[in-house]
């Protein structure tokens, strides 16, 4: 080399770890594929259409209004997928699409896009849909006779109501809350129950979660804290009064596993500190039990996570690490 003009001059450090944000995001997307497959297996191919609609709803506004090339980081796809997985199988496609768009616009873009938002966008979309279309989103269509047939009123025209005469099947939590009927634990674990597209197969979600945790793409402390606090609280309640559902039912029913593994661990909207992660997870678990047991809703995971999302800035503040060499007295400041 004769001339130094070719020399690069960058700032230290000159080596970087191999992980990148898009790689993390797309890996998460990849682990969602088995969940999609499970959803299609239990609820028929229509379930995939619902998820696809949510993804389209999320990706289009991100492309139109987001940063240049924002789609490449995969975060909008995750938002759409996660939202889709929390919808009932027969949910009208136009609503799913609207939910995806709201999730990205109000949940992310108004804050300035990836990394700036306070609330988990997928759950913002879900909460919006829950408040906007309370009937449709709590309608769990019964299995159709034919596996491939669309359930519910998937294809309802935009802005119109789904047909009113859908045959419905209740979710385990609904059965427990409103009819005090339990569901077999095995069914809960593998997903042979009513519920949202992606939240029924608890074991599958856990397996994906372990994979991500091993790759350090999610903070295992958060789901661990969620499960621990849910189990502990519901265990105590169950011991005091057996009418309250036991910890295993609490853990495996509804969206708790999906929420704990995929929603609560969203890096942007969970605490950055380790202590914060424990507090955050424990708070979610506690709120889930409170809402499920004393609240008016059968399921509370979404609200629990959103409420704790709102607390994250506060938790981050309160759990700033003690700086090296800092005297304990000063650590409180």
């Amino acid at each position: 080399m004769s001339t130094d003009a070719r020399l690069l001059v960058t700032a230290a450090p000159h080596v970087r770890s191999a992980d990148s944000t898009p790689r993390i995001m797309w890996t998460v997307v990849a682990t969602l594929v088995p969940l999609l497959a499970a959803g299609a297996w239990w609820f028929g191919p229509g379930a995939l259409l619902v998820v696809a609609a949510a993804v389209v709803g999320a990706v289009v506004p991100e492309h139109l209004f987001g940063r240049r090339g924002a789609l490449g980081d995969g975060s909008a796809a995750i938002t759409g997928l996660l939202l889709g997985l929390t919808l009932p199988p027969g949910f009208p496609l136009w609503m799913a699409c609207l939910g995806g768009a709201f999730a990205i616009v109000a949940g992310k873009l108004v804050f300035g896009g990836l990394g700036q938002n306070v609330f988990n966008p997928a759950l913002v979309g879900r909460a919006f849909l829950q408040a906007a279309f309370p009937v449709a989103i709590t309608t769990w269509p019964a299995p159709a006779a034919d596996w491939s047939a669309f359930r519910g009123d998937l294809l309802a025209l935009p802005l119109t109501s789904p047909a009113a005469d859908t045959v419905t099947a209740a979710t385990p939590l609904g059965l427990m809350k409103f009819e005090h009927t339990g569901t077999a634990l095995l069914d809960l674990a593998i997903g042979r129950t009513g519920g949202c597209i992606g939240e029924t197969s608890a074991l599958l979600i856990l397996a994906c979660g372990v994979l991500l945790a091993l790759k350090r793409y999610l903070d295992w402390r958060i789901p661990a804290a969620v499960f621990a606090s849910t189990a502990l609280l519901s265990g105590v309640l169950h011991a005091v009064d057996a009418r309250y559902p036991g910890p295993l039912f609490m853990l495996f029913s509804g969206g708790l596993v999906l929420g704990a593994v995929y929603m609560a661990t969203d890096m942007v909207t969970s605490p950055v500190t380790r202590r914060g992660a424990w507090i955050f997870g424990a708070g979610i678990g506690a709120l889930v039990v409170v809402i499920r047991v004393w609240g008016g809703l059968a399921e509370g995971v979404m609200y629990a996570i959103l409420l704790m999302n709102a607390l994250v800035p506060f938790i981050n503040r309160a759990t700033q690490p003690r700086v090296f060499g800092q005297r304990p007295r000063e650590a409180t400041s």
């Binding site: 919006f128 408040a131 279309f133 025209l157 119109t160």
Partner: peptide, 12 residues
């Protein structure tokens, strides 16, 4: 057949 967006008339 219009499906109202109930959320709009709620506080949020």
């Amino acid at each position: 057949h219009y499906e109202p967006w109930v959320v709009m008339i709620l506080p949020p």
